[in-house]
């Protein structure tokens, strides 16, 4: 199912090599891709790079897009795969260069013991999200940040519904533990 006639028409034109159609698809769907990428990688050059990669990969494999899911869902799936690959390669680099001492310093961060200001609170929450494993973070980003259903999340990550639920549960427990007072004081 393609999301709208406009998307279908633009994809058809893009398949014929029409750059104007490609640009319009980027402009139309960049916000959805940004939400996924920023949730996974934070902001910055790596995120911009991954966003561009997402669209370039899509355009290079247009022939394999059959319209079985909406274009937006399809792009979010590519964005998520791109972000997960970026995280894995960053992790490999860190394992090569980060010493045991710096890992220990992160584990006993004294700021974890006090209730922070609003900015510091947001930073703490982003760090807590960043401390989740990439697989758990992916579920949290799709289910909680983007507010997708369990089924959609499972479809994008290509895992069973039950795995989405168990990863979400474990991730939320970890967030609750690592956020401490920030978690306890939060009211929406």
């Amino acid at each position: 199912m393609i999301e709208s006639d406009d998307d279908a028409a633009l994809v058809a034109r893009a398949r014929r090599g029409d750059d104007d159609a490609c640009r319009r698809l980027v402009e139309r769907h960049q916000a959805a891709v940004a939400r996924t990428i920023f949730g996974m990688l934070g902001s910055g050059d790596d995120a911009d790079d991954a966003g561009q990669d997402t669209f370039v990969r899509f355009f290079q494999s247009l022939d394999t897009f059959r319209g079985e899911s909406s274009l937006r869902t399809y792009l979010v799936r590519i964005a998520m795969t791109t972000a997960l690959n970026a995280l894995r390669s960053t992790r490999r680099r860190e394992l090569r260069f980060v010493s045991d001492d710096s890992a220990l310093e992160q584990a006993v961060d004294p700021s974890a013991l006090v209730v922070p200001t609003d900015d510091a609170r947001a930073t703490r929450i982003r760090h807590a999200l960043g401390a989740l494993t990439p697989d758990h973070r992916a579920v949290v980003v799709l289910r909680l940040l983007e507010e997708r259903s369990t089924r959609e999340t499972a479809e994008i990550l290509q895992i069973p519904d039950g795995t989405v639920l168990s990863r979400l549960s474990r991730a939320v427990l970890q967030l609750r533990t690592s956020l401490g007072p920030v978690w306890e004081e939060f009211t929406e």
Partner: peptide, 26 residues
């Protein structure tokens, strides 16, 4: 789970790529 969602959405407002993203991608 509801609380975690609220915390995350509060801390991470909707973001977008910087100006010129479509140009850079093209």
């Amino acid at each position: 789970i509801v609380r975690a969602g609220g915390l995350l959405r509060n801390a991470m407002p909707v973001a977008s790529f910087s100006d010129g993203f479509a140009d850079r991608t093209m």
